[in-house]
């Protein structure tokens, strides 16, 4: 027993505690570009790597950027929405010392691992949603609160300030919760609008359809629905069409995949709050490249001066797509 106690005491003494200073600062460190690998390689790490919206916009653009620049690009991450697995992937990638890391900011839990990448001297850019509790070098993306606000304002306009509405998305995701808040902040100023519920469609078309069908049965006077993930819109639209209420129940949602655009054209969805996702990864990758190559040197030695030679935060803005301008998007050929 005595031996065990001594052994445990020794082990406890050998333990190395984590540092007390949590990464709450937004101060940036400048990349040490001397640490980049022999082969110039930029790595994107996301979660839900197979999600069509990510594949068609973020990843296609990132690959195209790599081809234009003549550098190697790699895309990694779990197939499902799994933030801990994304963190694990980033941790394993850091050890391979890529030239730059482009990280989809899916959750503030990424903060410590982003700091680890920065501490390892890897230029690190976050896109889509910011991770403000990290030391990332730059962020490019959409303000999700504004997405919710845009949907709220459109819904108030479509319903003339009166009627029951519901909204859905993936509950628990920081960016979507910010979007929900944006919507609620707008509608609470209009007492004629009644919010009947917030629902988790799990980014699944079938689930969004089921929730909408149930809502339409429970509230025959439901006037509007707002969607916050890529599959919300098609799911809501399907249930509304099946109930024979297309055009009567107003729908606003996010993203502008071909099926969303067709539904706007058909008058089933009234407005899309689109993100400029192509800009996230094109300029995100370019920022990394500019850091590695010191394209715009701002001082004799930016690293020693504590400078980052790219913008710290870029809001790429939103696209408002309605029946009036939808043809412009339907006719858009993919960028070459």
């Amino acid at each position: 027993m005595k031996r065990i106690v001594i052994l445990l005491a020794l082990l406890a003494a050998a333990c190395e505690l984590p540092p007390r200073n949590t990464a709450t600062t937004t101060a940036l460190r400048t990349a040490d570009t001397t640490l980049t690998g022999a082969v110039e390689e930029y790595v994107m790490v996301t979660t839900a790597v197979t999600m069509p919206m990510y594949v068609n916009h973020d990843q296609a653009t990132f690959r195209r950027w790599g081809e234009k620049r003549g550098v190697r690009v790699s895309i990694l991450g779990p197939a499902d929405w799994d933030v801990p697995a994304q963190i694990s992937t980033i941790e394993e990638v850091i050890g391979t010392r890529p030239s730059g890391l482009l990280i989809n900011g899916t959750d503030p839990a990424l903060g410590p691992v982003i700091d680890k990448a920065v501490a390892a001297g890897i230029p690190t850019v976050v896109y889509d949603s910011d991770i403000p509790n990290s030391r990332r070098h730059a962020f490019l993306g959409t303000d999700w609160y504004q997405i919710g606000k845009m949907q709220g304002e459109e819904m108030v306009r479509l319903l003339n300030g009166r009627g029951k509405i519901a909204y859905m998305g993936i509950l628990g995701l920081t960016n979507m919760e910010a979007g929900f808040q944006g919507l609620l902040d707008v509608v609470k100023k209009h007492p004629g609008i009644e919010v009947v519920g917030k629902f988790d469609d799990k980014a699944n078309v079938e689930e969004a359809t089921r929730i909408t069908s149930d809502l339409l049965a429970a509230h025959p006077d439901l006037a509007g629905l707002c969607g916050f993930d890529s599959n919300s819109g098609p799911g809501i639209a399907l249930a509304v069409q099946e109930a024979g209420k297309a055009g009567k129940v107003k729908i606003t949602t996010v993203d502008w995949e071909p099926e969303h655009l067709q539904l706007v054209k058909a008058g089933v969805i009234q407005m899309l709050a689109g993100q400029k996702r192509e800009l996230f990864t094109w300029y995100g990758a370019q920022f990394l490249y500019d850091m590695v190559h010191q394209t715009n040197r701002l001082s004799g030695n930016d690293a020693r001066a504590g400078l980052t030679n790219v913008p710290a935060t870029v809001n790429t803005g939103l696209i408002r797509i309605t029946r009036e301008n939808v043809d412009e998007f339907l006719n858009t050929a993919p960028a070459q």
Binding site: W81, D82, P84, D107, P108, A109, P112, L173
Partner: peptide, 9 residues
């Protein structure tokens, strides 16, 4: 993670 994620697991 230093945080409790409802989407964990």
């Amino acid at each position: 993670l230093g945080t409790a994620l409802p989407t964990a697991g």
